[in-house]
Computed example of a mutant assay.
Amino acid sequence: MSVSLYYCAGRATPLTVAETAAVERIVAAHMASFPYEDQESLYLYDRDDSRPDEIVAGSTKMPFDPGKVLPVLDHVLVSVTELRRALPGAEWRVRLDDLDVPWDGTGGYAFPGMRGADLAAELGGLQGPGLPSAVAVRPAAAGPSVLPPAGSGRGTVTKGEISKSTHCQECKRVG
């Protein structure tokens, strides 16, 4: 059984050209600094015309390796925080399966205590963008992309694959 982080934003007005460019920049920076080649990263779904108010939506499957869960979760939440700040006036929903991820205007999306030095030390000096230690930045892949890394098993989500589940219906899709 897997656990996924789901994120979505909606508003009545579509993305502007400047906002679209900001989203692309944030995604490219995230992909360039993501610490694991073998794990799923920030993944934004293709635009869905049946959801006209949805401006951004995506999901990330959490790793099975317990030592990678917190760094991946933190890295993606930092990126979703940047997306939220770049898209004013949107209503956001961020969930780790059935659990809402709290929003803090200063710190962004995070669970209480997840970025504490004590937790990082207890878990063996975990590193990530919001964690006490800095994550090693790997070189950017060729060109910005909102697609998942090669070999992640996730591709473009089509309209026929949209989940009909009431669980986080605003942002959960099958991918």
Rank of each mutant, 00 (worst) to 15 (best):
A28I: 11
A29Y: 00
H30T: 14
M31N: 15
S33Y: 02
P35A: 08
P35H: 08
P35I: 05
Y36W: 14
E37Q: 14
E37K: 12
Q39K: 14
Q39W: 02
L42N: 12
Y43D: 14
D46M: 04
D46G: 06
R47M: 02
R51V: 02
D53R: 09
I55E: 02
G58H: 02
S59A: 13
P63E: 07
F64M: 08
P66R: 07
G67P: 00
L70Y: 08
P71D: 08
D74S: 11
D74P: 03
H75Y: 11
V78I: 13
V78M: 10
V78L: 11
S79I: 08
T81W: 10
E82I: 04
L83T: 09
R85G: 05
L87R: 05
P88D: 05
P88C: 08
P88Q: 06
A90N: 10
A90S: 15
E91H: 05
R93H: 10
R93D: 13
V94S: 10
V94I: 13
D97W: 11
D97K: 07
D98E: 11
V101D: 06
V101Q: 07
W103M: 09
W103N: 10
T106C: 05
T106Y: 07
G107F: 12
G108F: 10
G108D: 12
A110G: 14
A110K: 09
F111P: 00
R115T: 12
R115Q: 14
R115H: 15
G116C: 01
D118F: 03
A121T: 15
G125Y: 08
G125A: 11
L126R: 05
L126N: 00
G128H: 02
P129V: 13
G130F: 10
G130R: 13
S133N: 11
A134T: 14
A136S: 13
A136K: 11
V137H: 12
R138M: 04
R138P: 01
A141N: 05
A142Y: 04
P144C: 01
S145L: 07
L147A: 15
A150W: 00
G151A: 03
S152H: 03
S152N: 06
S152P: 07
G153L: 07
G153Q: 08
R154D: 01
G155M: 03
T156R: 15
V157I: 12
T158R: 12
G160E: 15
E161Y: 02
I162T: 03
T166N: 12
C168Y: 01
C168P: 00
C168W: 01
